[in-house]
Design a binder for these strands. Structure first.
Lengths: 172, 172
DNA sequence: AAAATACTTTACATTTGCGTAAAGATTGGT
DNA sequence: ACCAATCTTTACGCAAATGTAAAGTATTTT
């Protein structure tokens, strides 16, 4: 359960392009230099973003990449899904089937239910954030109150206690 | 951004043990058979769970594994972290540094800020769900209203629109 | 004490993801 | 036409994760 390299770097490249606006343009070399990545790798990242309709390429001399839409119209769920695939595979039950053809808990699987709920929960978060939010100048980004229900799928029910303690994620 | 095999299968094994309660016990062979996994692989999973204090092993003839604590006292954040490591690496900025020593956006990195916020958000969800929630009989699990603020770290601010549309996670 | 049961550890083959490298295709300038 | 700049695609080597296999250690029963 963690961010893949493609997701991390691809998102950064897209943010860099978003800063240029829908009229701006950057070459692969430009982006690679701005992000400290190699040119071939940046090339691959942009290729993925293009195939998913997030950027538009112009070939030939003087070409480059432009963000496909207004940054406000691109949310992070779309970006992360484009770069890393679905958060929960549609074929979850066959992928994690152990030694059998299909998962032992083919029906009534509480684990799958909760993990599916988690995926919806994550989607909710990512969908609420757009590229525009990431390029605004404010140093700290705030969270708005949530709608009290995730309308995508099931999710966990209340437990007596919240053990949530020391999160290790650092913010420099 | 997806569930690893260790996280998926390890959680299942732990749920199976949780169903036996703190007085029950299952051998590796029992668990492997119940979950449709190979014995060596189940062995590895249980080893990880034991090293993280989630199960207790009894060796020798008649031995097996027992859940270490009451299922109500074990939340999914602890389980997922034990099996898959931290959701956001503490050394995020050096891990995703591209070709340089450190990330180009060493300070004032909005991407890292949001991804850190996401990690906290996920933690919030996982911490609220315990193993006891997963072994209760109810067919569908409901989500309780959230506290309106994640108190772990920063998180995204409101965007004008919620494009959240077709989630592909399936629930059979 | 010897043997059987069952956890523990290490090593290994396979697969997947990461990042690089190189050759191909398209456009614009001369 | 030709060349240069730039995106596009395919192929490759390396590292990490996945799952298996086998040898080792502890405990109980006989």
């Amino acid at each position: 359960m963690r961010i893949s390299a493609l997701e991390e770097y691809g998102l950064r490249c897209l943010v860099t392009l978003a800063k240029e606006g829908t009229d701006g343009m950057l070459s692969i070399a430009d982006i690679a230099q701005k992000e400290g990545l190699s040119v071939p790798y940046t090339s691959k990242l942009l290729s993925i973003l293009r195939k998913n309709g997030l950027v538009v390429a112009e070939r030939g001399r003087g070409g480059g990449f432009t963000i496909a839409r207004d940054p406000q119209e691109i949310d992070l769920f779309e970006v992360i899904t484009a770069l890393g695939g679905p958060i929960i595979d549609p074929d979850h039950c066959t992928r994690f089937s152990g030694q059998r053809e299909e998962c032992v808990h083919a029906d009534n699987c509480s684990v799958h239910e909760v993990l599916g709920g988690l995926a919806g929960y994550i989607q909710e978060f990512l969908s609420r954030t757009t590229l525009a939010d990431l390029i605004s100048t404010g140093p700290v980004i705030e969270l708005k109150p949530l709608s009290s229900r995730v309308n995508v799928q099931s999710a966990p029910r209340p437990s007596a206690e919240m053990s949530g303690g020391g999160m290790s994620a650092d913010a420099e």
